[in-house]
């Protein structure tokens, strides 16, 4: 079932169109930067962007920071929200279960497919950004955010860690959308529900008055991957973010499983 699910995901136009759009946004930003040669002043705009003009090798990190607030989570929410609800809406869910594909197995296959999509998207963004960045801005020794210089091995390791951290953060979104996908028969409702949660979280994270709940909000530590490019790496928020996403993943996947197992499939 996992192989079938992956094949279905990879042969869909939608998958590749959304990934192309995701990788396209940082490319467009890079072109504007290169043409105008006007970078945001340090401390404004998306992370890293001010430093990119000096060194294109930093652009993958900047690109992740560009797609992370909205574009990437929306794409993940749409794909994960579609997982069960999409099959229910098309009527194929009943035939999969009769085939029989066990409900647990189905959920695992969908999860694997969503994880694969997320990694594919994050990788596509980083690789495209690396190519575009080094072509347009040239490369040089990578400076850390703290001002010291990073060796190329260290830079690669940190970029890979950043990709994994962003992927893990997106898995929290995927878990929420997957849970909603088992609740409703409408993929749109599931995706919108997950996006609504993220928007709420984003608003509260930006609000000083809600400081007491901020450590528990899903989007609170997303941008902590920037800390990977400090020297030495600032691990506090990274670890908190990893643990917090872990809680979201476990709770919502558990809820998704419990709901699917006891659900009457009437679609």
């Amino acid at each position: 079932m996992i192989a079938v699910e992956l094949r279905l995901m990879l042969t869909r136009w939608r998958t590749w169109v959304s990934i192309a759009l995701l990788a396209g946004l940082p490319t467009v930003v890079a072109v504007f930067l290169a043409v105008s040669d006007v970078a945001p002043r340090p401390g404004t705009g998306p992370a890293f962007l001010s430093a990119v003009l000096e060194n294109g090798a930093l652009y993958p990190a900047a690109a992740l920071a560009i797609v992370l607030p909205l574009f990437l989570p929306v794409a993940v929410a749409v794909v994960a929200g579609e997982a069960i609800a999409g099959e229910a809406q098309a009527g194929t869910l009943r035939y999969l279960l009769i085939r029989p594909v066990g409900r647990t197995r189905l959920l695992v296959a969908k999860l694997v497919s969503v994880v694969a999509y997320t990694l594919l998207a994050v990788l596509a963004v980083s690789v495209t950004a690396y190519v575009v960045g080094t072509q347009l801005f040239g490369s040089g020794p990578l400076p850390s955010v703290s001002g010291t210089e990073l060796s190329s091995t260290a830079a690669t390791v940190r970029t890979v860690l950043a990709v994994l951290y962003v992927g893990w953060s997106m898995l929290g979104v995927a878990a929420v959308a997957l849970f909603l996908s088992t609740v409703t028969d409408s993929p749109l409702a599931a995706a919108l529900g997950a996006v609504a949660l993220l928007v709420t979280s984003g608003v509260l994270v930006g609000l000083e008055a809600s400081a007491s709940v901020q450590p528990y909000l899903p989007t609170r530590y997303w941008l902590a991957f920037v800390d990977l490019f400090r020297d030495p790496v600032l691990t506090r928020d990274l670890l908190r973010g990893t643990a917090l996403q872990g809680v979201y993943v476990v709770v919502f996947l558990g809820a998704a499983w419990a709901n699917l197992m006891t659900k009457d499939v009437t679609s």
Partner: peptide, 29 residues
């Protein structure tokens, strides 16, 4: 695994051919 069924009308992945749909369903279980 020993039951074949048709419940409330057939349902398939619309973007695939009939043959591809049957092959996928067969591979899934």
């Amino acid at each position: 695994a020993q039951v074949g069924a048709l419940v409330e009308g057939p349902a398939f992945y619309g973007h695939l051919s009939g043959r591809a749909n049957l092959r996928l369903s067969d591979a899934a279980g």
